[in-house]
């Protein structure tokens, strides 16, 4: 869970920073998207690096999901009889890891169909990501899906980052507070960084 989570988190930081290029206009943003396909050239053929990264990420997502399923199964088996006196346990972010993860999994499928394969994109013009994004966020329900998913992402990272540090043995008493703060800062900045794009389209800042 921790290893695959860290891989996906690193990708998300790069993804979020890349997204912010949308504020420099269509030409620069589309240019950036085109450049992504040239990474690794001339050693690699055009788009090869992109496909290597995509494969790695799909493997990470699948392994993350399989590990979560196995862990959940084991945990449910370990507590066959529930307590009669019900009590809210742990924080909201911690309690929503499983279903939040399912939401994120479904969102990833939709997100790829929307902006990678362009299957469900309202415009669906190849090599024009800027225009596709703007077309997307002009539809209210797309915004709702996106905002819900990004809030789920923030919660998932809030617990997930610190949890990964704990699993990998990076936590000790002295570092505990710093790692919790890092988890919160990462969660908040990723959520905010991803959400400024639909907000900018909605408010007409990006057109």
């Amino acid at each position: 869970m921790a290893g695959t989570g860290v891989i996906m988190l690193l990708f998300l930081v790069a993804h979020m920073l890349g997204n912010l290029k949308i504020f420099f206009g269509a030409e620069e943003f589309n240019g950036y998207a085109a450049w992504l396909r040239t990474i690794g050239e001339p050693a690699l053929h055009n788009s090869w690096y992109l496909y290597i990264q995509r494969t790695g990420l799909v493997v990470a997502v699948v392994l993350h999901g399989v590990a979560a399923y196995q862990l959940s199964k084991r945990d449910i088996r370990a507590r066959p009889a529930k307590y009669e006196h019900k009590r809210q346990r742990a924080s909201y972010a911690t309690r929503t890891m499983r279903w939040g993860g399912v939401i994120l999994g479904l969102y990833i499928v939709w997100h790829i169909l929307d902006l990678t394969t362009l299957t469900v994109n309202p415009l669906g013009k190849e090599h024009h990501p800027y225009e596709n994004i703007v077309a997307d966020f002009r539809i209210w329900w797309v915004n709702v899906v996106y905002i819900v998913a990004m809030l789920a992402l923030g919660l998932h990272i809030r617990h997930g980052f610190w949890s990964a540090a704990q699993t990998l043995g990076a936590v000790n008493k002295r570092r505990d507070r710093a790692l919790k703060i890092t988890a919160n800062v990462l969660a908040a900045s990723l959520t905010a960084g991803f959400l400024v794009v639909p907000v900018a389209v909605m408010t007409g800042l990006v057109d």
Binding site: L71, R74, D75, I76, R77, A78, R79, R89, A90, T94, M97, H159, W162, S163, Q166, T167
Partner: peptide, 11 residues
């Protein structure tokens, strides 16, 4: 022994 796995809830 059939104990569950840790999900770092802190309980």
């Amino acid at each position: 022994q059939g104990f569950g796995g840790c999900t770092n809830t802190g309980e």
